[in-house]
Write a protein that binds this DNA or RNA. Structure first.
Lengths: 249, 249
DNA sequence: CGGGAGCTTTGATCTGTGTCAACGTGAAGT
DNA sequence: ACTTCACGTTGACACAGATCAAAGCTCCCG
């Protein structure tokens, strides 16, 4: 059921592909959201190239020169920033239809790392082209602004997690957020596989992996979720939500 | 030396004023950064109105409908988000030349509160107008994208603070960041007055006010800074930087 | 000039999460 | 089937920062 893919050999095991937005089943979720049929047709040339990124490989690294943003076609990524001493902060997990690379616009260099957590494909959107099309298609311009703004709002949510929530609140918020995003993509709201390790979850939530593991176990004991390794089932979403709204003395 | 200001009476104690970007001494720092003289002239009509916000008043609140972004002409703001139970996360402190309100683009409503920490003036930039001008003036378009991107990068820095740094590292990073921003505005790199309370600093850094106070005292004892109430003097910037790069076992 | 409100400092104690350590588990390869 | 390796779980203990409490400093207002 997936659109036609023509693999072409390229350097370092990544494969380039062609694909038009107008044919893409993510068009309602991704960059073209809200564009008319005509307008989507106009931006079909915007994505000239798709790139495959194997699990564990970097899409880009902090310091790489910024040329393009990337729309995730399939797969799952994390972005992180590193302190000189090696401490890592995962700044986000991104899934199909989400955009990577907007961090690089401001300085013309990427400022974080983007790593595939499973074999993935991204649509390469040369940024200069995007700005050109944006000047012609105001719906595209506006939607791009919305996406950047939402990234800022998302980041505020993470600050809230990190700044004021306790460990179990953080994990509950994390699970509910994943559930909601999987739902928007047509997957089960209650059952999914985590693509990231406990350590990566911990780094995102500002916790150590042991604390994440204990919180999972606690949720399991309390019947809120069922956990088997990376497989998660949400048994009591309302219970998880209650954790968030109930303030401890 | 300040440009002409014409006060006009308006509701709720705020005053509207007119001011052209081409006359503004912040033009090298603010939205018009990098525009040619001609281009700055073109956007002079973009800012139709200036607004005075008294200390303690809101420029906007979460939930307010989004119409405009704001360039700070003078003064100092904080932005924060609230949890239902009242816990507050300060997401940033903004000073002259910085932009407020980009959080609202994505949902057409503001998603945080912006509060003046001292009597302030902002230039109101109607967002629809900004998008229109952006389609004509590509340097403006590009610079606006850079500003949004930098906001994202800034937020990643805060996540790093909150996620992986210890209390004294957070405060050191905070002070160095303020120092650098004051410097960029022509103020002393080593001596300034904090506009925010210990509680607000704590909320920004994910710490309690007592912890912030103790960290200030500790820096003082160690000769890194001198603190008298809100007046801060940085005595050993290198020492503060060292705190950041030295990892504790 | 006195009183009070808001903010800050400092001390004593508590606690959630980190740290360290040992063991369990599942997947991949030989 | 056995080994290996990366990842996950669990327990015991430590500690950074939270919490609780009291007192000090400034500035404003009457």
């Amino acid at each position: 059921m997936r659109a036609q893919i023509i693999p072409i050999a390229v350097p370092n095991l990544q494969t380039e592909l062609r694909e038009a937005c107008s044919q893409c089943n993510l068009r309602e979720l991704c960059l073209p959201m809200g564009l008319s049929g005509d307008e989507i047709g106009q931006i079909d040339q915007l994505v000239e190239v798709r790139r495959r990124i194997q699990r564990g490989q970097h899409l880009y690294r902090g310091g790489d020169s910024f040329e393009a943003i990337y729309a995730i076609k399939t797969g799952f990524f994390k972005t992180d920033v590193l302190l000189e001493d090696g401490r890592e902060q995962v700044t986000g997990f991104q899934m199909a239809g989400e955009i990577l690379g907007m961090d690089g616009i401001g300085s013309e260099k990427h400022t974080c790392n983007a790593v595939a957590l499973e074999d993935s494909e991204v649509c390469v959107i040369p940024f200069a082209d995007l700005e050109n099309y944006s000047r012609e298609i105001s719906a595209l311009q506006h939607h791009f602004h919305k996406m950047m703004s939402r990234e800022i709002v998302r980041d505020h949510g993470v600050m809230m997690l990190l700044g004021v929530m306790r460990a179990e609140e953080r994990l509950a918020a994390f699970l509910l957020n994943l559930s909601q995003r999987f739902t928007a993509r047509g997957y089960s709201p209650t059952e999914f596989n985590l693509r990231m390790t406990r350590n990566e979850i911990g780094s995102y939530l500002g916790l150590k992996l042991e604390t994440v593991s204990r919180a999972f176990s606690r949720f399991h004991e309390e019947g809120l979720i069922s956990v088997h390794q990376k497989h998660i089932q949400i048994l009591d979403a309302a219970g998880l939500k209650k954790l968030l709204s109930e303030r401890r003395a």
